[in-house]
Design a protein around this nucleic acid. Structure first.
Lengths: 205, 205
DNA sequence: TCTTTTATTCATCATCTGATGAATAAATCG
DNA sequence: CGATTTATTCATCAGATGATGAATAAAAGA
């Protein structure tokens, strides 16, 4: 019976502090599992074993926490580096490989959180749309021949295939697709992406 | 100044009652816009101009309301009717058309709600996975030649393309894809679906 | 050293959440 | 008609939510 436990002291801890990173990591995980609305600040704080007010101290509020949680750890420039410079006829494999690599990097939690949070609400979907159109699709379709309208449509089509692939493999986790190797996925999917990029699209024209 | 307004009487209204349907329609709309967690019972009640307790009266709670809201109005049997009986070599066009038709039917709100609610949370994703594997993919790949493993993979691949297409066209609304006609979408996408169904998948084997 | 910044905790807010039980009135059924 | 079922409203519950401001303590900077 040592009597009074040390009176849970407030004030700064001794030594360095991981708290900020810990909160971020926990938030990423929870946002990835339950989406934006399905995750509460207090839940994040609880699982990170901190006071809820810490979340407000480091981040201004839930919105900012979410924003920082899903901030793409690798920017499109880097992930798609090299794609633009490739001959369009060989671009599809590079795209599929880049995207597979990205989704199996430490960024995965953030990306799933991004997908969940962003598909889950109309307002956030608009963000996704602009982000995709401006930063990703334009890069993927850079230098393609054809009218701007045609090039845009090709970009859209690539998006349907690549986003669908990511969703089924990493979010829904359909088997056997989720367990297939990179090489296998490339072999299966890249040809279809290639048709969207440079193939004949209009057999009826 | 007629003085006291009629003392907001409780008890049953005279005449028939749309209330149940009104709640359902409102719930579908809101779930479609904000997902499951992002929609509250009281919000539904407010927009339907009813007392929140009505929602509990007609549906037992939020979960049941959601379940009834997203209940696929057309069952897969009907939507994909005829697909199974088609020659696999011509199945892709039928699939794409059936899916486009479905998503532009009155079921659209429910489907978007389904997508949002279901992608937004880990628990609900499992439901989606089983539902897809059992009721949809099996129908689409019925009668395909090849090993069961290969057929399953073909089904998965079709899913990546079709789900990606639906997501980009109806949820994210990427342009110009979102505004393209059915014929155009079929022309653009069906060949890729066809490759997944019956095409050469393994140029390296 | 003294001062300022930063990390941590606590107490508390108003608000919204999903839910329940009772009161009332119309419809329906016998 | 009378009894029962159904539709509607109201009052209220306990709990969670996001947020704020103050108290405290260590670190960093002067």
């Amino acid at each position: 019976m040592s009597g009074a436990l040390p009176p849970l002291r407030r004030g700064r801890r001794s030594g360095g502090s991981d708290s900020r990173e810990l909160i971020l990591a926990t938030a990423r995980r929870l946002f990835a599992e339950h989406g934006f609305e399905g995750t509460s600040l207090r839940q994040v704080a609880r699982e990170a074993e901190m006071d809820p007010a810490m979340v407000h101290h480091f981040f201004k509020g839930k919105d900012q926490l979410f924003a920082q949680s899903i901030e793409l750890p690798a920017d499109p420039d880097e992930v798609l580096s090299g794609v633009e410079s490739l001959d369009p006829a060989q671009r599809s494999e590079a795209i599929v490989r880049a995207v597979l690599r990205l989704w199996e990097s430490p960024a995965q939690h953030g990306l799933v959180a991004f997908a969940r949070g962003t598909i889950g609400s109309k307002a956030k979907t608009a963000l996704l749309r602009d982000m995709m159109a401006r930063t990703i699709l334009s890069r993927i379709t850079a230098g393609l021949p054809g009218s701007p309208a045609e090039v845009k449509m090709r970009g859209n089509l690539v998006a349907t295939q690549v986003v669908g692939l990511m969703l089924m493999r990493y979010v829904v986790r359909l088997e056997p697709l989720a367990s297939a190797s990179h090489d296998e996925v490339v072999r299966l999917v890249a040809p279809n992406v290639q048709r969207y990029l440079t193939g004949e699209l209009t057999p009826a024209d």
